[in-house]
Amino acid sequence: MIDTVPATAATPATASAAGGGDRPVVGSYDSYEQARKAVTFLADNDIPAHRVAIIGENLRLTENILGRVTAPRAAGMGAALGACFGLPSSLLVLLAAGPWAALLAGVAFGALLGAIFGLTAYWTACGRGDLLTSRSLVAARYAVVADVAIADDARSLLIKFGWRTG
């Protein structure tokens, strides 16, 4: 659903200076996807996209706990990272030297060093930071703002055409 400031409002809402200056709010949405679709709709209707912005309001950090980091998991993650670093270096050796054994040796050596590094980092932490997490920044509302010169046109378009999300 679209919540807009009526075109007849005496003082339209404006975004804070942190969002790039005082620009009137032309639409307010529950999700980022809705706000993005509104901006796309405006751009499709000849509103310059570079003069419009999406501003997240009332931000909150969400951290989901995915599991605990154990010694085997730390070694495995380190080995995977080390193998990823060992592969490009072994490809350089492969191009220079030629044998495919260099490729496998580079990956294996990288995995071994990565596992050692992962275990060392795990044991050094001593129980601090032994949780595997995923963080995301989410806003409660997303305001679509536009430059003052085009704000009335943008707001009118959103109201006139009854822009809604599917």
Rank of each mutant, 00 (worst) to 15 (best):
A17Y: 04
A49G: 08
P72D: 04
D153F: 10
G166V: 06
E33A: 14
G27I: 03
G98Y: 09
T62G: 03
V138C: 00
A96Q: 08
G76K: 09
T120I: 14
V25M: 03
A125D: 10
L119V: 11
A125E: 08
T11Q: 10
R73H: 07
T11C: 01
G76C: 13
T40V: 12
P88W: 14
A143T: 07
S136W: 02
T120L: 14
L59N: 04
S31A: 00
A125T: 01
V144W: 07
A80R: 09
Y122C: 05
V5E: 10
A18I: 13
V5A: 04
C84S: 15
L112S: 04
A143Q: 12
E33C: 05
I116E: 05
S28W: 02
G76E: 11
L92M: 15
T124V: 15
P99E: 15
A101V: 12
D3T: 11
N58H: 07
G78D: 08
V93I: 15
W123V: 10
A105W: 10
N45E: 14
T133C: 14
A149S: 08
S134D: 09
V5C: 11
A18G: 15
L104M: 06
S156R: 15
H50M: 12
L91V: 04
V52E: 07
T120K: 08
A101D: 09
A74C: 04
L103H: 00
N64G: 06
A75K: 01
R155H: 04
A80Q: 06
I65L: 06
L59S: 02
L158H: 03
E33V: 10
P99R: 14
F41H: 01
G82W: 11
L131H: 11
P48R: 02
I65M: 06
S134R: 15
T14L: 14
A97R: 01
P12H: 06
L104S: 12
A71D: 09
S31Q: 10
A71V: 06
R60T: 13
C126N: 02
G106T: 09
P12V: 08
A49C: 01
R60I: 07
A139W: 04
L66H: 07
A140Q: 09
A71F: 00
V148I: 08
A49L: 13
I55P: 00
A7F: 08
G67K: 11
L158W: 00
A101W: 12
P99Y: 12
K37F: 09
L137T: 06
F109T: 07
R68G: 03
T133Y: 01
V5K: 01
R51I: 07
S16H: 00
A9Y: 09
G129T: 09
G19T: 04
Y122E: 01
D3S: 02
A149H: 12
R23F: 06
G118P: 12
C84D: 05
C126P: 00
A9E: 11
L61I: 11
G19M: 03
A49S: 14
Y122W: 15
L61D: 08
A9P: 06
L103N: 05
T62Q: 14
A38H: 02
T8M: 14
